[in-house]
């Protein structure tokens, strides 16, 4: 039996069809946007407030790290501890996407300074990258249909 147009069953079917269409939407573009600009993937998927909250929190953490004169990691090979620390930190920094590229491209460079605050700044920069990675994974879950909005 074909549900009547405008009935609740008909609306459900239309919504199901439209969500099926959303699943077929390109998966790469929102992921790339989410990686490059924190929250942009969510904005692209019409979740504007979520995107803005992510942009404020992730870029806020990144810029607080910069204001604390945090250091960007440079991958260095040495003993196992140094290698894991510097490569891991470098990957975390890279996860910031355009924020990292622009900051380094504009010539931000920070030598190691005494005091805990600069060290916190370094960790803030890495953590903002890791949080951006969480946002990218969230975008992937939304696009692949694994995460349904209720």
């Amino acid at each position: 039996m074909v549900p009547k147009r405008g009935s609740s069953k008909g609306r459900e079917e239309t919504e199901r069809k439209s969500s099926g269409t959303a699943r077929k939407s390109p998966i790469v573009l929102p992921l790339v946007l989410a990686y490059l600009i924190p929250g942009a993937g969510h904005v692209y998927l019409k979740r504007h407030w979520h995107g803005l909250a992510l942009l404020a929190a992730i870029s806020g953490m990144f810029f607080c790290g910069i204001l604390m004169q945090g250091r960007m990691f440079v991958p260095t090979s040495g003993n196992i501890y140094t290698t894991i620390m510097t490569y891991g930190g470098y990957i975390g920094d890279l996860c910031n996407g355009l924020l990292y590229v622009l900051t380094v491209g504009l010539g931000y460079e920070q030598e190691t300074l005494p005091g805990a605050l600069h060290d916190y700044g370094t960790k803030f920069i890495v953590c903002s990258g890791l949080l951006n990675l969480l946002a990218v994974v969230d975008v992937f879950e939304i696009v692949s249909g694994e995460k349904a909005e209720s």
Partner: peptide, 16 residues
């Protein structure tokens, strides 16, 4: 740190 990380975890962690 707690404030900013909690915002991100709140947004990505649940679906409503």
């Amino acid at each position: 740190f707690a404030l900013l990380a909690s915002i991100v975890m709140g947004v990505v962690g649940r679906s409503s």
